[in-house]
């Protein structure tokens, strides 16, 4: 199993994501934003950071990077794709996921260990969890408030596509405390908090993030 992690100019968490992939037992493959080539990987992670300096809108420029043409095509072909933080923003801009991420309602950057409830386990990235599992993983963003129109939110809820929800005090003003969602098929997941920072006890508040990387081992479709 080969899992690719895309590096955009301004990506920050690509190295941690590669490390989390290696921890899970998969082969970690670096992918470059300028190459429309997925190097034969079975799944892709779009990492956190500030791709292209967050110019224009978060993820707006990255969405048109050459590698994204290949990622969008592969995602439509059911390849598992996980967008974390900036990666979630890129997936929304690419219309692989509905809605958008806007500036935190309280206007401050948030950086804390965040409690979440896992609400969907039928996705490529969450099958290792049980519905209702409470996990603690880092959350760090300035523009992490998930928004979508009411019809879209209702549809996400009705279809069981809210993957994770924030517990406790509202961290960023996200609609209905949504921390992560998936597409209809469940192969594409966007998540604002960072599971890749919570796979080893030495650094990170827990090892609760491991499940995202072990789930995909069972889910990947051969490329």
């Amino acid at each position: 199993m080969r899992i690719g992690v895309v590096t955009f100019p301004g990506s920050l968490d690509d190295v941690d994501a590669l490390r989390a992939v290696r921890w899970s037992g998969a082969e970690a493959v670096s992918l470059w934003h300028g190459d429309a080539d997925l190097r034969g990987v079975d799944a892709v992670v779009l990492p956190g950071g500030f791709s292209y300096g967050d110019y224009l809108r978060c993820g707006a420029i990255a969405r048109f990077a050459p590698v994204m043409t290949a990622v969008v095509a592969a995602a439509r072909d059911q390849m598992p794709v996980l967008g974390i933080c900036n990666g979630f923003q890129v997936l929304c801009e690419a219309h692989l996921l509905p809605g958008a991420l806007i500036r935190n309602s309280h206007r401050r950057f948030v950086c804390r260990d965040q409690r979440l409830r896992i609400e969907a386990t039928g996705t490529a990235w969450t099958s290792a969890y049980e519905v209702g599992d409470e996990i603690v993983i880092p959350l760090k963003n300035g523009e992490g408030a998930y928004v979508a129109d009411t019809g879209t939110l209702d549809r996400l809820e009705a279809d069981g596509r809210v993957v994770a929800r924030y517990l406790g005090a509202d961290p960023n003003g996200a609609a209905r405390a949504i921390a992560g969602i998936c597409n209809q098929r469940g192969n594409v997941v966007g998540l604002m908090p960072h599971p890749e920072h919570a796979v080893e006890e030495l650094c990170g508040p827990s090892t609760d993030g491991r499940g995202f990387f072990t789930s995909v081992l069972a889910a990947a479709v051969p490329a």
């Binding site: 809108r57 707006a60 928004v147 979508a148």
Partner: peptide
């Protein structure tokens, strides 16, 4: 396509 995100 690029300058605005019509979702928001």
């Amino acid at each position: 396509t690029l300058l605005a995100n019509p979702v928001i």
